[in-house]
Simulated assay, not measured.
Amino acid sequence: MARLFVTGGHGMVGSTLRSHPGIEAWEVLAPARAELDLCDAAALRDWLARHRPDAVVHAAGVVGGIQANMAEPVRFLAENARIGLNLLTACREIGIRMLLNLSSSCVYPRDLGRGLSEEQILTGALEPTNEGYALAKIMTMRLVDYACREDRSLQWHTLIPCNLYGPHDKFDPRQSHLVPAIIHKIHRARIEGHETVEIWGDGSARREFMYAGDLAEAILRALADPSALPPVMNVGPGVDHTINDYYNVVAEVIGWQGRFIHDLGKPVGMRRKLLSVTRQAEWGWAPRTGLREGIAATYAWYLEHQP
């Protein structure tokens, strides 16, 4: 059985991938940080030399929403850049031929809005609220590209997912992205009897979200035939919704019937960030989980696992 090394194997994407039925084709190696610190270059190289995985999915990283990115830009840039550099350097030295690097839609310039196509990366200024994280992701993506230029036999590719949500997500508002933060806020409002919930900005900014289980399916398909995958490819539904829409769907799923108030003085990030899925369509794949279905499954997991 081929060995698959999943970095970040205990985060949302890694945990979802490890629980997907299709993963049974692989012997999965997913050490926790206490066992393997990706910031320790020597330890990482030694681990790879001992275990010799046949393929790597790079899903590890320091992640968070607007609040976390604005509060700790040094950490988001330095740690993510160090992790990417250490991993790719070690994989190259050990001779790992197959690697999927998971990037982020924040690598796109801030003012493009919609139809974000892969060739537009590095053509404009980044969104300031998460620039550090984006720079680290761009660096790792370019290293994947450079390595393939120098060694044409490598099957190294980068997937750029849109925003994700699902079971195993972070729901603490200090660390979470939009959808899990909304789930947590509205759940607390329901059980504590609050009649209002605050939304940052006017709620008209648009975001594209995909259920993490759909990304796991795309990863497994890519691993099964990496030669069919473009070097860089967006992954997402190709449709977006307003922030108000996400609040309304979550409220409907949870059963909260209060009202929303908008704080127009709070930052909202980019007004719109919708990926082009042309390459994904040519690859012959699309996510299958609808928004309400995905939020309902995520909320069920939240109820079971959150205090």
Rank of each mutant, 00 (worst) to 15 (best):
M1I: 07
R3Y: 07
L4S: 06
V6F: 05
V6K: 03
T7P: 05
G9R: 06
H10V: 01
G11T: 04
G14S: 04
S15G: 09
T16Y: 11
L17C: 03
I23G: 07
V28F: 09
A34R: 15
C39T: 12
D40V: 01
L44W: 07
R50D: 12
H51S: 15
D54Y: 07
D54T: 02
G61F: 09
V62G: 04
V63D: 07
V63M: 12
A68C: 01
N69L: 10
A71Q: 15
A71T: 11
E72A: 10
E72V: 08
V74Y: 14
V74P: 04
L77K: 05
A81R: 01
I83A: 05
N86W: 00
L87W: 03
L88C: 10
R97Q: 13
L99C: 12
L99N: 10
N101F: 15
L102A: 13
S103D: 09
P109S: 13
P109N: 13
L112Y: 09
G113Y: 14
G113C: 13
S117M: 03
E118Y: 01
E118W: 02
E119C: 02
I121V: 09
L122I: 00
T123R: 01
G124P: 06
G124K: 12
L126C: 06
T129K: 15
N130S: 15
A134L: 05
A134P: 02
A134W: 09
D145Y: 13
Y146A: 08
A147F: 08
E150M: 08
L154E: 06
Q155C: 05
H157F: 08
I160K: 02
I160R: 04
L164F: 06
L164W: 02
Y165H: 03
G166W: 07
P167H: 08
P167K: 11
D169N: 15
D169E: 15
K170V: 10
P173K: 10
P173V: 10
R174G: 10
S176P: 02
L178D: 14
L178I: 15
P180D: 03
K185F: 00
K185Q: 04
H187C: 06
R188Q: 13
R188K: 12
A189V: 01
G193K: 02
E195W: 01
E198S: 00
G201Q: 04
R207E: 15
R207N: 14
D214M: 13
A218G: 01
L223V: 08
A224K: 08
D225A: 07
P226V: 06
A228N: 04
L229R: 07
P231A: 13
P237Q: 05
G238W: 11
V239A: 04
H241P: 01
H241C: 03
H241F: 03
T242A: 03
T242G: 01
I243H: 00
I243S: 00
Y246A: 02
V250E: 00
A251D: 00
A251P: 01
E252W: 05
W256D: 00
W256N: 00
G258D: 02
K266L: 15
K266N: 14
P267N: 12
V268Y: 14
G269M: 11
G269H: 14
L274N: 08
S276K: 01
R279P: 02
Q280C: 14
G284I: 12
G284M: 10
I295Y: 15
T298F: 10
E304W: 11
Q306W: 15
P307E: 14
P307D: 11
